[in-house]
Design a protein around this nucleic acid. Structure first.
Length: 568
RNA sequence: GGCGGAGUAGCUCAGUUGGUUAGAGCAGCGGAAUCAUAAUCCGCGUGUCAGGGGUUCGAAUCCCUCCUCCGCUACCA
């Protein structure tokens, strides 16, 4: 049996993520994990918080808390929200874990031994007032090109000219506004990615089935300009993984930490080690070391397009460069962006709907269904309240929810809350044949992680039940041929556990409610014919509560208003 | 500027080994049914496939050109 390792890009610690972040990695990863588990595969689904870097330190300072404490709290908050969305991580770790410290230092040591680390002395801007080195972006000043007075040290947002911090006129700290800056010499480690360019290029070129979005971004970085550039992997910060060469000190690098993008992907591995400590799994190397049992693992990553360079190049460079048999990713599913009502979702500007707010106003299934059925797979997608209301009401309340409602209530009123007798006839056989074809198509789309197509097929499966009921019309048959009506009712009732099983990856709560109402467990159908005999005559059930209350126009208008501005 | 993605019905989107009258869902219009959350089902689409040019017996699909939107551009993560 194949085993699948699934990782979602790890969300940054500095705040609560918005719906665009959710659909960009965690939610699709969860869908796939749930699907594979339902199909009986062994799955390890990992995610974590990404806790290092300047923004984390600044967010902690703003909150008036020590950074370690801040991160611990925010990790708890994000973990709770993830539960709220039913994200089924086997472990939700932290990039600040001791396991990640050890592994990050281990990789750095291996890379150094392989001659893939160089020490580079460079000049960085230091702010006396802030008592820290400032990343280019955290330096503001007047653009020498256009005169814009809020140009950043990496680029002027007004004229888009790329800048060097030293180009700025009257530079100041974006954190404190202080102009007490000094250019200081500092030494950093660089990962010599350029040495691995050929290897990485061959590897990327061999991935013909990856999304074009993934490979095109990777190839661009491999071939742009002088090709893949070496990358600094250390920073002058307090919070992070201290620079060490394996277990040994690294002379000259005292007081420095590894760059967040160096240690963050390594957390994918460390997270499995954390999971062992948590007792979730017994052996993490069997998922990560090809020489220790991981040769039959298929590893799939999910991420937004902004993360692709790090996952296609930097992290593989780390793994390949180590010379050790770590598992390389087999498939990278990448996503475009979800826009919000004509503009971008923005964490920094507080624009859009954030994960905690979404859960305040509606159950997770509403969000899961809409976001997944509109996943930005081929291009950017757009969230509007009108579309959200319309689609959710139609798909979930009218098509699926009402189907469950109408047949269970019909049965209760005519035959009581137990499945009636009756032989299936040609109409039932036709339905079964149709559903079998659709089941195969649905599984094929899920296997290919073709999310919108899978959602569309699932919806068609729901519609098939309504079509069947409408044409078989048990309410009419009941008047002249109660036995026939009983058979139709039994067929239709059997669709509920069938739908529950197939829908669970998308809408786990509603699926469970359907199964519970029918007094069955959630199961993935082997084939339509056998699945639709799950409930035998005489099987007792309970009419479930309304599965999906509709979103009213008043609610929609209220939310559109509430979320029209900026989160404070 | 460079690179990449996108531009198809009012809306959201399918649709490339080039091939019959370009499809789906939603919205809209008409009808059926009355079991159900006024929920369902059936029927109805003459769209400059962004514009222009080219290759071809044949182009949404290949080539050239051009316009628009978005992203990335390596020290935010």
């Amino acid at each position: 049996m194949t085993r699948t390792l699934i990782t979602s890009a790890i969300p940054y610690i500095n705040g609560i993520k918005h719906l665009g972040n959710l659909i960009g990695s965690q939610l699709p990863a969860d869908l796939y994990a749930r699907y594979l588990r339902a199909r009986g595969q062994e799955v390890l689904f990992l995610c974590a918080t990404d806790e290092h870097g300047t923004p984390a330190e600044l967010a902690a300072a703003k909150a008036g808390k020590p950074v370690a404490e801040f991160c611990a709290e925010m990790h708890g908050v994000q973990a709770e929200i993830a539960k709220g969305f039913r994200l089924s991580f086997d472990h939700f770790g932290r990039s600040s874990s001791p396991q990640n410290h050890a592994l990050t230092q281990h990789f750095a040591g291996r890379l150094a031994d392989a001659g893939l680390i160089s020490e580079v002395s460079e000049k960085q801007v230091f702010s006396h007032t802030d008592n820290r080195f400032l990343p280019d972006r955290y330096i503001e000043g007047t653009c020498p090109n256009c005169g814009y007075d809020k140009a950043r040290g990496d680029q002027c947002e007004n004229c888009t000219k790329q800048l060097d911090p030293t180009d700025l006129i009257e530079p100041r700290s974006a954190i404190s506004g202080s102009t007490d800056l000094e250019v200081r010499e500092t030494k950093h480690l660089y990962l010599r990615q350029s040495e691995l360019r050929g290897q990485l290029s061959d590897w990327i070129e061999s991935k013909h089935d990856w999304p074009i979005l993934t490979t095109s971004i990777a190839k661009k970085w491999l071939n742009d300009g002088d090709g893949l550039q070496d990358r600094g992997i250390t920073r002058d910060l307090d919070w992070g993984v201290p620079v060490k060469r394996g277990d040994a000190p690294w002379p000259g690098m005292e007081g420095k930490v590894f760059y967040v993008w160096f240690d963050a992907p390594i957390e994918y591995i460390a997270c499995a080690a954390e999971a062992v400590e948590e007792g979730v799994i017994s052996d993490w190397e069997r998922w990560w070391r090809v020489d220790k049992g991981a040769s039959d693992v298929r590893y799939v990553q999910f991420m937004g397009k902004d993360n692709v360079p790090f996952h296609t190049l930097s992290f593989p460079a780390t793994i390949l460069g180590s010379g050790e048999p770590w598992k390389l990713v087999d498939y990278i599913k990448s996503f475009n962006y979800l826009n919000y009502d004509g503009g971008q979702f923005s964490t920094s500007q507080g624009r859009g709907v954030f994960m905690d707010q979404a859960l305040e106003i509606l159950p997770p299934d509403y969000w899961r269904w809409w976001l997944l059925s509109h996943a930005p797979e081929t291009s950017d997608a757009e969230f509007t309240w009108e579309a959200f209301q319309q689609d959710v009401n139609k798909d979930l309340a009218d098509v699926l929810g009402n189907f469950v409602s109408r047949i269970t209530k019909f049965c209760r009123s005519k035959f009581g809350e137990a499945v009636p007798e009756g032989e299936y006839g040609p109409q039932e056989e036709a339905l079964i044949a149709d559903l079998q074809v659709r089941l195969i198509a649905y599984q094929a789309h899920m296997d290919a992680i073709d999310i919108r197509k899978a959602a569309s097929e699932l919806r068609a499966i729901w519609v098939a039940g309504n079509e069947y009921l409408q044409s078989a019309a048990p309410w009419t048959a009941f008047k002249t041929d109660p036995d026939r009506a009983a058979a139709i009712t039994r067929m239709a009732l059997n669709l509920i556990p069938f739908y529950a099983g197939l829908s669970a990856p998308f809408i786990p709560d509603a699926a469970q409610a359907m199964a519970t109402g029918m007094h069955t467990d959630l199961i993935w159908p082997e084939d339509a014919a056998s699945a639709l005999t799950t409930l035998p005559a005489g099987h007792v059930f309970t009419v479930p509560d309304v599965l999906f209350a509709k979103i009213s126009d008043e609610q929609r208008e209220g939310w559109a208003e509430r979320f029209s501005g900026v989160r404070t």
